[in-house]
Design a protein around this nucleic acid. Structure first.
Lengths: 222, 222
DNA sequence: ACTTACAGACCGACTTGACGGTTTGTTGAG
DNA sequence: CTCAACAAACCGTCAAGTCGGTCTGTAAGT
């Protein structure tokens, strides 16, 4: 067994793992700071401080790099959420804290990277497939963390799922809005109303259709 | 005066306007069908059936093309909304119809194009500036159309603005979600709960802060 | 009316640079 | 010694933008 020190004597596996991580981290950074279209293999390579050969060795094509970056990013997001949720402790208002935590997660750089990939996935089937499985996994663990924080008995209870889903939609939309509008007051009010809506939704039965309005004619969408 | 027939005799101004429109339409189409990063000047040029010279004559740089496409797209979206709102007539449930209309608008191709530009704008200041003004303009006219449909006395009444804003956030987020998940049942429930939430919000005072939870430490965002 | 002069609209070959990927070579672990 | 891990030169392709030239309305001169 090799020593646990950071000695220059490292096993191949370790070396490979670190450079792989460096490349993936660089990819995420690039997505965050330069956006999807500027996330070129060369940009990633330079950012990671690796040679072209190294990049191509680990990720034979750009597609694979992005696909793997999706997984990498999703793991990071899950880890972050878990850590933060655990660190919340038993505060006074767990609900508000939990919702605020979610909002915090969705205005951070990791989420920005996710959005870049997400939108790109609209016109990239492979990327979309990768995102679907990753996001499903993340959604599940997020639900568990938040059920803990928000004090729900069962993460899979329909009312809880629906309420959380609603909050997620709002924050997803708001994170887009925040790209164009940066307004602290607006942000606080958003948080307040969303928290309230969440509470209301939790106490509401499955959501009775108030008006059955079909999504309407497909052809007339703009 | 020239004849009103489609004779080959057109004024310079007319010629320029049509090719300009063709190019901008092609740009939007390209954004919708191929996404932002694949929206190259050559792709647009081919799609519009225009020579390279023509493109560069009207839009000396790609930046200008995209900037102008933002304005073009926003106008199109506004026109569509206005038409549809006017066509709604005096149905039974105007509120549900209005909300459904909004959702319809935000799942259509024009909105998809807008999202592509929107996300790209995160890392492109010029694009962002263009989008801010365009989106502000569109937001205003959308509010007026919907105030009409939703039966609000004043489009600028705070309660109405807030409620509409909330719905917009939800639908923005949901339109992202819809990229990965296409589920008619989910869509119907979304529409139902959102409509209900909108109604509830209209009857609620300015939104009392249920818990003053600051956006928290900047440094710990993921 | 007919010509001439001009300007805006449009064309397409070309330059430059960068991107994704291949190939060949070197190093270090097992 | 063998092979994975990396390095770096290299290649084909294509995007963006430039440039000289052509075509077509428009308007002034006669």
């Amino acid at each position: 067994m090799p020593s646990t020190s950071a000695a220059p004597r490292r096993t191949q596996e370790e070396r490979a793992a670190t450079t792989r991580a460096r490349i993936l981290d660089a990819t995420v950074d690039c997505l965050v700071e330069e956006g999807y279209s500027a996330t070129t293999t060369t940009a990633v390579q330079q950012r990671a401080g690796v040679s072209r050969g190294a990049l191509m060795h680990h990720f034979p094509s750009k597609q694979e790099l992005l696909i793997d970056a999706v997984a990498h990013l999703t793991v990071q997001r899950g880890v972050w959420l878990g850590e933060q949720a655990a660190a919340l402790g038993t505060g006074t208002d767990r609900t508000a804290a939990g919702i605020a935590l979610l909002w915090q997660a969705m205005t951070g750089p990791l989420f920005a990277a996710a959005i870049e990939l997400w939108v790109a996935a609209r016109t990239d089937e492979d990327l979309r497939d990768a995102l679907v499985v990753s996001e499903r996994r993340l959604g599940r663990s997020a639900r568990e963390f938040l059920a803990e924080v928000l004090g729900a008995q069962d993460p899979d209870e329909p009312a809880f799922r629906d309420a959380l889903d609603h909050v997620l939609q709002v924050f997803r939309g708001a994170s887009l809005t925040a790209i164009l509008r940066t307004d602290a007051r607006w942000e606080r009010r958003l948080l307040a109303t969303t928290t309230q809506t969440f509470i209301d939704l939790l106490g509401t039965p499955p959501a009775l259709d108030p008006a059955r309005h079909e999504p309407a004619n497909e052809e007339t969408r703009p």
